[in-house]
Design a protein around this nucleic acid. Structure first.
Lengths: 175, 175
DNA sequence: ATAGAATATTTCGACATCGAAAGGTTTTCC
DNA sequence: GGAAAACCTTTCGATGTCGAAATATTCTAT
């Protein structure tokens, strides 16, 4: 049995046998998995009435923890890998849905603090359990040992690319 | 050393110790890698004057092979995982740049055949070599054995999710 | 022959994102 | 204490994608 990437590697080998296209075996599959898994996650969240980006923001606030379940816009940007302008838009829409509230930080009026409302909190806490169960289902094709090896490899690759826990870390330049 | 995903797994464990969030260790890292690798690929292609979606289309046509380096719009859609309306837009723009030509299939006038112009052909063939070198550089953090194991795991996961070589294969419903 | 089903592409409106620039606020440093 | 630099968020215009509907062509079955 071949996957879609096997085909295009074979095509490249036929057309350009001089080229070593083996990196595509990884990067191409990563692309495809991203799309397929993304749809699997998105379809499931839609059943709970959430878009993927909504869940991302709510979950980021939820796991940032007590007491306030609250982060500044900048911290949200850092955690979610979207630009600041996209975050403004996301928060706008979540405020309209009543899932988060936004207020100027009284201690530093440049900052905006975004926090979960009780509806938002209830929503994440209700959905997240099903969400991880769904993710687990998507990974059913790998046994526990394989999953562990995959985690290890992905983690090593991420670290080699300079990804690091954003504890005051350096972000990509963004406006 | 921790990557960004280690942090949010730890946060979930603190906030919801009842939950097994281990699937996120894979899916979360896949998301992040996708973004970081995507930027690495895109920035490099930009140096050659190409957008990522442009390269995707040109490369798909190039590797589809002689004699004509030509595919129908539908085949392009199947190979690239974008919707048909996005493909119309992509081809429009590539035609304007003179990199592909579009013509109605005389044998079946519903179909549109898209083929590389000689400029398009020269462009891909010039860029692809650098492109794979760049991809290889992005994967430098893994040694050859690790890359091989990663390929194996990603491939197995893809197959378990129903991805298969699109030789008349069943695609996802799209309008 | 022809109505209707099936197939293939394009058009249309909506939407999420991006990067640059603008708008406020605070800090720094003379 | 005030000007300039640094900081944080929002606004703006552009872009690329999506899904549904529209258009155009071919196939099927009577």
């Amino acid at each position: 049995m071949n996957d879609a990437v096997d085909l295009y590697l074979a095509q490249w080998n036929r057309e350009r046998p001089d080229l070593d296209v083996s990196p595509m075996a990884i990067i191409g599959r990563m692309n495809r998995l991203q799309q397929i898994l993304g749809r699997g996650v998105g379809d499931h969240l839609a059943e709970h009435g959430l878009e993927r980006w909504e869940f991302d923001v709510l979950a980021t606030l939820r796991r940032s923890g007590a007491p306030e379940h609250r982060l500044s816009a900048k911290e949200l940007v850092r955690m979610t890998m979207v630009g600041s302008s996209a975050m403004t838009n996301r928060v706008d829409r979540l405020v309209k849905r009543g899932l988060v509230h936004r207020e100027v930080d009284p201690a530093n009026r440049r900052r905006v603090l975004v926090g979960l409302t009780s509806e938002g909190f209830a929503m994440v806490d209700r959905v997240v359990e099903d969400h991880v169960a769904n993710e687990s289902r998507l990974l059913d094709g790998l046994d526990p040992g394989e999953r562990e090896r995959l985690v290890h490899l992905l983690r090593k690759l991420l670290l080699s690319l300079g990804d690091s826990a954003p504890e005051g870390g350096q972000e990509r330049a963004r406006t």
